[in-house]
Design a protein around this nucleic acid. Sequence first.
DNA 1: CAATGAGAAAAAATCGATTTACCGTGTTGG
DNA 2: CCAACACGGTAAATCGATTTTTTCTCATTG
Lengths: 351, 351
Amino acid sequence: MAVRAARTGRPSIHDVASHAGVSAATVSKVMHGVTTVKPDNVRKVYAAVETLGYRADPLASDLRRAKRRIIGAIVPEFESEFFGSMITELERSAEQRGYTLVATSSRESQDRELELIQRMQDWRVAGVILAPVRDEHGPAARFMRENDMTGVLIDRVLADDSFDTVSADSASASAGVAAALVEKGHRHVLVIGLGEQAATVRARLDGFKAAAIELAPDMVTDIILSESDVGPLRGALHDYFSKGSRPTAVYSLFAKGTLVALSEFRRRGWRCPEDISLVGFDDAEWMQVTWPTIAAVVQPVHSIAEQAMDVLFGRIAGYGGKPVASLPKCQILMRESVGAPRHGPRAGEDS
Amino acid sequence: MAVRAARTGRPSIHDVASHAGVSAATVSKVMHGVTTVKPDNVRKVYAAVETLGYRADPLASDLRRAKRRIIGAIVPEFESEFFGSMITELERSAEQRGYTLVATSSRESQDRELELIQRMQDWRVAGVILAPVRDEHGPAARFMRENDMTGVLIDRVLADDSFDTVSADSASASAGVAAALVEKGHRHVLVIGLGEQAATVRARLDGFKAAAIELAPDMVTDIILSESDVGPLRGALHDYFSKGSRPTAVYSLFAKGTLVALSEFRRRGWRCPEDISLVGFDDAEWMQVTWPTIAAVVQPVHSIAEQAMDVLFGRIAGYGGKPVASLPKCQILMRESVGAPRHGPRAGEDS
DNA sequence: CAATGAGAAAAAATCGATTTACCGTGTTGG
DNA sequence: CCAACACGGTAAATCGATTTTTTCTCATTG
């Protein structure tokens, strides 16, 4: 008779072994489908597993293993739809390959990001998916490089020659936005962004400007880049309008900026798109049910996650070769918040 | 000279030990601040730790330990602001106590929820925070009870005599909504909800009805409860209005319902709040920047997380006693989407 | 002076798996 | 006929920590 371990209350592999009258090694083999075990023993082991309700302890098994079956994920925040669904996709993909995803949030802090990547190394995870706070040159990324951890950088990154990267093709998406705005007749657009997200913000900006000038040489593009937080951006946006600037459209390079812009419109009593048009990076569920529906650039979350995991597991499997840079395409949803410009929003009001 | 382990490339406690000229046990003691180590050895150990860059492997240390310093969390989805910030708070709280939070999503599936809770037990986590898909009677909760895992149920749960529970006081919040609507002059309200979230939906519904009848005996409350998914709700809502029902306000008992209602309004070209008022459970960032701003019941995410973790760690520390049920209060933000009713929305249009 | 005890550290057991080394037995080939 | 080899298994080593047990060294005491 097997005796269940007293300490944890759960049967160990040795309990199964003695119950089945074989050694622990044999049990391990059966559990892994090794074919060199006599059918009779296989049956006995399965029977013992069944009656004892045995399930392997992943910690113990990973300890002995060279590579742990854990993938770490670090994202800047859990609160947004974008990173929420990103984690969902990453989790799904990891589990599909028999790994466990441990998701953490850097809370938009580079210090914390560094701590987290270190903790990931403490855990000796098989690989890491890092969505850096700022870009591929942050402290966490450096740590990864110095300790050559296997990992893939996503989202706020550009192609890099020491990391595999996957991020939405924001440049071409921005070009698409520019094309759409030009086509509607806009010739004066304000672009807002967060400066600290240097990597992608520049790509998005350049993509927009290049396409705009190409398609409409007379296009005027104003730019407001706030350094770190949305607070300053809010202020800068307010000042910008208060000085009398009257673009016919606003293009926000990141999700929160869209909210900031909307909030500023509301404060001034401007109607969208009658008084001013709006497009933003990142789609959200609410954008298609409010008045007006908000035009948005939809990032290919599923593709980003899938490709990142593909590359990551390739590296885990030992595949060498140069870093790859993947740029899945975005989709642009031109909704009601974008219209043809009038002569400009009525001027004169100020708060 | 100490030799770094060849396999992982990282120094183990034995490397530190031999480098410092002491035993592994002594290193362990120093790392845990045990005071019975000679100052001289303490110094040597610290020096070795420093030069080797030693950091303990949490898996190895947890394996030996009775209780692992891991807290499992299971939520129905990662995509919403509510659960996103819930995870953020839980993670913060766990780390503050030296534990690691492993967050997972049941993706609104009870089957998966069961799988996840089993996996948590495989990991032998110290405790679990479970936000069940439906209520405290699901398969995951049963599994927890049967294997007496230590854990706390949150959000979609009522007080229970076999579990500690923490959830927003939806009944009193609903009463507050009723009071506000009555005060504005509403006498015909439609309440929409998801039937499968039996636990809290009933509490929210009853809280509303009781307060409504108490404050305005002539109040007419219509109710649409969809079984499982938002799809059927969308249809039911459409049918309801198509039959000519004209409540002056809609109260949605859950976040997605608010979007569904808005979307139906939009489809019919109804203005909010001129034609119909709207309040919903759960606040979101966008609700205060759109037209109109959407009134919402704000759940005390921080309190829920904090209280749940307090109770959980109490249990982990071995505190016995009866299950506790915590009901932190909600806040009601009455915004522009709620106005005084006219004679009712203009009738006659139908899609 | 031998016995006792305290203090500190080393040695060994442990956690629960995987992996390696080795051991019979029977078969095959040179 | 004996070495080589495949087969099926088991014992033991291992992963990297913690915890228990043992050992050793002094200092104290009857």
